[in-house]
Design a protein around this nucleic acid. Structure first.
Lengths: 203, 203
DNA sequence: CATGCAATGTTGACTGTGTCAACATCTAAG
DNA sequence: CTTAGATGTTGACACAGTCAACATTGCATG
């Protein structure tokens, strides 16, 4: 990698930087993501990234944004694989969330961590995150119509769901459960969503 | 502050560094915590901290440990203020957890984040974290005896509770809910724990 | 009490990072 | 073509973590 390029201009440096950044995060963790390292991977000088990203945070924001897109896609895929009804689809969303987190812990951390200090400065990031949450809200509404979830503000109920799966994901990703349980992420997710659905169900 | 000290030796540099670190984190966030800044605050040279902490992670681990102790204390206090029964005490634990997080977001992030990469290298940290989780397990068991929580492995059920309150806390602390809701942390916590208790309750 | 060792601080240096200004090169619009 | 903007490069600065070499001091032991 980092092979010499022939032309002075790169051609698509922005994309190359992003790809390099994504690989750095996935392979070596968020702290390995450095502007200079990304530049090196793209075979470009240390200052070149500044033509495409205002600063390191902007690059991180882009990485986070891609993460939300990938997460949303994975959740959609998982739900689509369930023809068996609204509740099954809802559950699939939650399990996919946890699975994404445990499969891509470093990426997950960039998506939610504070490396990107002010989210509102990156509207595309915010939009991508909101779309993910939207999946949950829709699923709640659908389950309400099907009688699997009790009446109430769908957003508020979806927040319960989000908190549950996000909490488990965060604890997993941050290694907080290593000392506590041998069980795999999927088993834990099953257990936790079980309680969640009992709580969301009609009385 | 950072006043000149008279003696060559500081007297209690370790404690002073920890206090400085805590203040830095609380006042300016985790990224402001730098070994050099902590040293400055203690009125000591840049390399002095290395006599008391192997590296930056060790200092962060100590900060995290203090955080868990403070969190545990706050939860105990909140539960003790509820004479009204097992379920009320359990709820108080959860609300105190979320309140701690939203009151000390930066500290909370150090406690759970990955700045401290390998927790198992810091047994006191792990112990402090385990004690916090222990509060939840005990509360679950107590609630089971009182008939407020269904039968089942207390640890597994406590993990549901932990996931829920931790998830909400993480989302709050990371600013993920700012674009979503005007409600205060306490209101959100009420709503989320409501669903949680419905899910944990006897069928 | 003297002394010498281990603990504790200090200095100065090295590497790596984010960032910027000044400069070089290329691309495409007129 | 020409030339202005876009895109890369070089060199520098400040600051961080960390280490080796050195200075100072408190304390246990003789």
């Amino acid at each position: 990698m980092a092979r010499r390029r022939k032309t002075y201009h790169h051609g698509n440096l922005r994309r190359a930087l992003l790809d390099g950044a994504l690989r750095l995060v996935e392979d070596q963790g968020a702290e390995a993501l450095t502007l200079r390292a990304a530049a090196r991977r793209a075979g470009v000088s240390q200052a070149a990234p500044y033509r495409h990203f205002a600063d390191k945070q902007a690059l991180l924001a882009a990485v986070a944004e891609e993460g939300f897109r990938a997460l949303t896609a994975a959740m959609r895929r998982a739900a689509a694989a369930q023809a068996a009804g609204a509740l099954a689809r809802f559950r699939a969303l939650g399990l996919a969330y946890v699975e994404f987190a445990s499969t891509h812990p470093a990426h997950f951390r960039v998506m939610f961590g504070r490396e990107v200090a002010d989210r509102s400065a990156y509207p595309p990031l915010q939009a991508a995150a909101l779309e993910t949450f939207g999946l949950l809200v829709e699923a709640v509404a659908e389950c309400q119509r099907a009688g699997f979830v009790r009446a109430g503000d769908p957003e508020a109920l979806a927040l319960s769901a989000w908190s549950t799966v996000h909490g488990l994901s965060a604890l997993l990703v941050d290694g907080q459960l290593e000392a506590l349980s041998e069980k795999g992420a999927d088993v834990l997710a099953q257990g936790v969503t079980e309680t969640l659905f009992l709580g969301l169900g009609p009385r």
